[in-house]
Design a binder for these strands. Structure first.
Length: 566
RNA sequence: UGCCCCUUAGCUCAACUGGCAGAGCGUCUGACUCUGGAUCAGAAGGUUCCAGGUUCGAAACCUGGAGGGGCAACCA
């Protein structure tokens, strides 16, 4: 080991720096406290995964706590099914929250703070219409104009606020606003709205008994303060909201308040990370649901076969910064392969079957060949027996009637090794009436059996295969990126991200052929189909008699590069 | 023409309070040989947006400029 000093605490990014400083200086007088605050109005996606890994990771690394808090202040969009999905996803990612809280449980406390602010002359009830409020806020370059109701007496404000709470007013009749500065350079500080009336709304946890709902700015920082959060981590677009966050926490009387830190949200190539857009994909039927394997949702990735380890590794690699970060999808795919490479067994599956008959192999004979479950460089062991016989299937792509340069697989007269088996030679083609190759007639070299005494004969290529009689038919779903361009929002004027959808994001192969050894494996088993990619049997649709596999991710494709080079 | 943030390798991003500019991906080269679409190793690649300034020393601090982004929902 070198003599490099080992830091007491992890210091990987600017946020962990700050937290480490908090710990070192005892700034908060308690262990770091973070929270993950989703609104239960949709499923969690990769962007949330980044935030989850950050918030829970910091708590874990620094011996602090991390709460799961549902920011459920909008009765129109929130549902119990989403809180259940969110909890499932966080757990699946490998994190356990300390406290499980709901902003809707704080409505009473928030109301008390509202009264407090009114009494301090820091808030007032405004009767202006929504339109008037918007207009009077001014613009980024011109100051707003104060509401005619801005200077109501404390008693009048209090009376009005209580009647708002009692449900005496219709939606939109009035709102509670903070009294700050209508000329503030930060638009958010121009008397921001605190409470709005939703008298008829049905809140999924509060029913219809509660009539006034806090807005994000009013609920968020105060919820953090109530829970004793030390560092409130959020994305960059909330930077301007930090002023109102601090203002409210201070005027509500919290000493030792939480501090907001902003970091860049994740943007991933060839997909969208916005609950609003993902909701549209679901509602308009462009995908089969929130857990469609093409979705960048946690549920979608899980269904596809990605492991939580890969997502955590990916979050680690991309890090956190103060600058918007568009990450290449290749980087994510790399993390997925990296994880699966060391974990999953190899099997042989022929995606596009082409029949091969070994003319010099005895009819009716079946021999079992020993196949390694892991390659030499993966520290796992295990073998299995796979049947070999006169009639086989190989992949159509492993044969070229007129071989391209550097094509080392099968072509008329060429030799190739069958993985774990023999070297075969292509002697003859069988074509249909249209001239398509429908069968290859080959001979095998009995001396070249894999692992045998004379198996050291060299050939340039090794291909995968299955024995025709014993192979299992299966459906294979080849998933690809959901959008055909890196930034789905970068479309011509008048179009939106829907027009950038990749029409080939799902290609179904109804009848692929897989070796029989996978027949007894439970659904949800992951494999590498050698030379094809990583796959998992679909947890919803796969059954013993009808296997269905999802492609998690392909292998790194250097043959495609070779083809491109010509 | 307000406030705030950002600009570092081909790409995406790091670099604690100023101290020899790093990583991943990609690219190229090599190794292995029963995954030649796996894996492993190595290499190339930089005027740190521009112009000044402070400093023994600047990617970092100051001034000015250019380019990109966020903010004017009774969403979060």
């Amino acid at each position: 080991m070198s003599d490099t000093p080992i830091p007491d605490l992890p210091r990987r990014d600017f946020i962990r720096e700050l937290v480490a400083d908090d710990v070192a200086t005892g700034r908060f007088g308690r262990p770091p406290a973070t929270r993950f605050p989703p609104e239960p109005n949709g499923f969690l996606h990769m962007g949330h995964a980044k935030s989850i890994c950050l918030n829970f990771g910091i708590a874990r690394e620094f011996g602090g706590t991390c709460n799961l808090r549902f920011d459920d202040t909008n009765p129109f969009t929130e549902e119990m099914q989403y809180v259940e999905a969110i909890k499932r996803d966080v757990e699946w990612l490998g994190f356990k929250w300390d406290g499980e809280f709901y902003a809707s449980d704080y409505f009473e406390q928030l109301y008390d703070i509202a009264e407090l602010l009114v009494k301090k002359g820091k808030a007032y009830v405004d009767d202006q219409t929504e339109e008037e409020i918007r207009t009077n806020r001014g613009t980024v370059t011109s100051p707003g104009t104060p509401s005619p109701f801005r200077n109501r007496s404390t008693d009048e404000n209090l009376d009005l606020l209580r009647r708002m709470k009692a449900g005496e007013f219709a939606d939109g009749a009035c709102v509670l606003r903070a009294k700050i500065d209508m000329a503030h350079p930060n638009m958010i500080m121009r008397d921001p709205l605190l409470l709005r009336i939703r008298r008829g709304a049905h809140h999924y946890r509060r029913g219809t008994s509660w009539h006034i709902f806090p807005l994000y700015d009013f609920a968020h920082g105060l919820s953090d303060a109530i829970e004793g959060i030390t560092r409130s981590l959020c994305t960059l677009e909330f930077k301007d909201n930090r002023d109102i966050y601090d203002w409210l926490v201070e005027h509500a009387g919290f000493t030792d308040p939480p501090r907001q830190i902003e970091f860049a949200r994740l943007e991933l190539d060839y997909t969208v990370l916005s609950k609003r857009k993902l909701l549209r994909l679901v509602n308009e039927g462009h995908v089969s649901g929130w857990d469609d394997p093409r979705m960048p949702t946690i549920a979608g990735l899980r269904r596809r076969g990605v492991r939580p380890e890969a997502i955590r590794d990916f979050a680690e690699v991309i890090g956190v910064a103060r600058k918007d970060a568009r990450v290449e999808i290749a980087s994510f795919e790399h993390a997925v392969r990296n994880d699966l490479n060391m974990e999953v067994p190899r099997v042989l599956c022929v995606l596009k079957p082409l029949k091969v008959v070994l003319t010099n192999y005895p009819e009716g004979r079946v021999e079992m060949l020993e196949a390694q479950n892991y390659p030499h460089d993966v520290p796992k062991t295990g073998t299995r027996q796979i049947p070999f016989s006169r009639e086989l299937y190989i992949d159509r792509d492993d044969f070229m009637e007129v071989p391209a340069k550097k094509f080392f697989r099968l072509s008329p007269g060429s030799e190739v090794r069958l993985r774990f088996g023999y070297i075969i030679k292509c002697e003859e083609l069988v074509k249909d009436a249209a001239g398509n190759v429908v069968e290859l007639r080959c001979t095998y070299d009995a001396e070249t059996k894999s692992g045998g005494a004379n198996s050291d004969k060299k050939v340039k290529g090794t291909i995968h295969w299955v024995s025709a009689a014993q192979a299992l038919s299966c459906e294979v779903r080849l998933y690809d990126r959901l959008f055909s361009i890196p930034d789905p929002d970068d479309v011509p004027e008048g179009q939106d991200f829907i027009s950038a959808l990749n029409p080939d994001s799902l290609v179904v192969i109804p009848e692929a052929k897989v070796e029989p050894t996978v027949g007894q494996d439970p659904v949800g088993t992951r494999y590498q189909f050698e030379r094809a990619g990583y796959f998992m049997s679909d947890v919803e649709d796969s059954r013993p008699g009808k296997l269905v596999f999802n492609r998690i991710v392909g292998l790194r494709d250097s043959w495609a590069k070779e083809v491109k080079k010509g």
